[in-house]
Amino acid sequence: METLYLLIPLSVVLVFLIGAVFWWGISHGQFDDLERPGKQILDDDDRPAGPR
């Protein structure tokens, strides 16, 4: 059972890590619009490919 002393603090650290990843996602607009980007592939886009 000594392993609990490692695993439980580890789980706490993990929660904070995942929280940080999620924070990055939110602040980069990953969750701003959950509908449109999925449909974007269906839009006509006649502009030439390449750097915009």
């Binding site: 929660v15 999620f22 939110i26």
Partner: peptide, 15 residues
């Protein structure tokens, strides 16, 4: 506001 609310919700949910 929406972003902050989502993160608040996430923190609470995960914790």
């Amino acid at each position: 506001e929406a972003r902050r609310a989502l993160f608040r919700l996430f923190v609470a949910g995960f914790a």
